[in-house]
Amino acid sequence: MTYNSTIQPRSGQKHRPAKRLIRSACVAMISAAAFVVPVVNAADLTLEGKKIGVAVVGTQHFWDREAFNGALDMVKELGGEPVPVDGGRDNQVHADNHDILLSNKVDAVISILGDGAVEPKFEALKNAGIPVFTVDHLSPHGVNNTTSDNYYMGTTIGRYMADAMGGKGKVAVFNAFEGALRICGIRTGLWKYVLQDYPDIEIIQPELAEEFANAPEDARKKTLDLLNQYPPGELDAIHVGCWDQPAIGIVQALEEAGRTDVLVTALDGGPDTLEIMAEENSPFVANVAQQPRLIGQTAAMNAARHFAGESLLPQTFVDVKPVNGPDGAKAVYEELGYGTL
């Protein structure tokens, strides 16, 4: 798996002239990392008279909520009528919600996260002529997937973690979703790819699997079990492969057990985890922060672009912010507009 070969523009070839505009017409809304092919000026985009279904797997977590609200707000801003459905952190309910959007005859669906259960639903929507714009879920049945640069996230967190560990030691990984979600496959897969070059870093087997719902509490318990199994000196780091809600519980467990020598790394970088990272001597040392709100907004804008007749690339990548150490956490926290720490 390499960084560039995975991006294969599906329709890019037919619109060569448009490519020239990439550099000149970068839209203020979308950050520089976004590889959209704009033919319509952002100010002219509209969803007037369109009913846009917005499905999210849950709204308990900051990331999900921000992406959801970002999409909803942008749909409204563009004059569309959003039809929000929330899976309540249950992937099956989330998938079933797409059926409801289908029967509600929406004009397009923005679908945020979800596991394999949604694929047949996407297919049904596509067959009914309803375009699907996914967030963090690459699907053959979607028009476009807006996501963070997962490749960059995976390799960056791999490098930061290896550096923090001094290039050697044992690391345990929470990795429930590598096989089930493509984005997690990328993030964890590339993290492992980087570690191939650090022969002295050993990934503890079997890998741990966190629960989707109640992740922090679940991870806390599993970490306490892990710490019993690996006394001081036998465990150097714990990594969460695809997100960072479990890291909240992991840090709690480390503090409870007085094992703050064990390093923690994870991905997502919402305000809650950045705050933990910013604490003095926090074991939580590295992260890569995403911009979920911007991702949601971008997905909505992509829907508008699609309706304006523009051809979209299969994926739109939104910039991420690597976070290294407490000072890095404070800086990113401020940069992303969460306030000051």
Binding site: G88, D90, N91, Q92, V93, A95, D96, D115, G116, A117, E119, P120, E211, F212, A213
Partner: peptide, 13 residues
């Protein structure tokens, strides 16, 4: 069939 696979946790709902 409904979930195109097994999803742990679906017993709650």
């Amino acid at each position: 069939a409904r979930g195109s696979g097994s999803t742990p946790g679906s017993e709650e709902n």
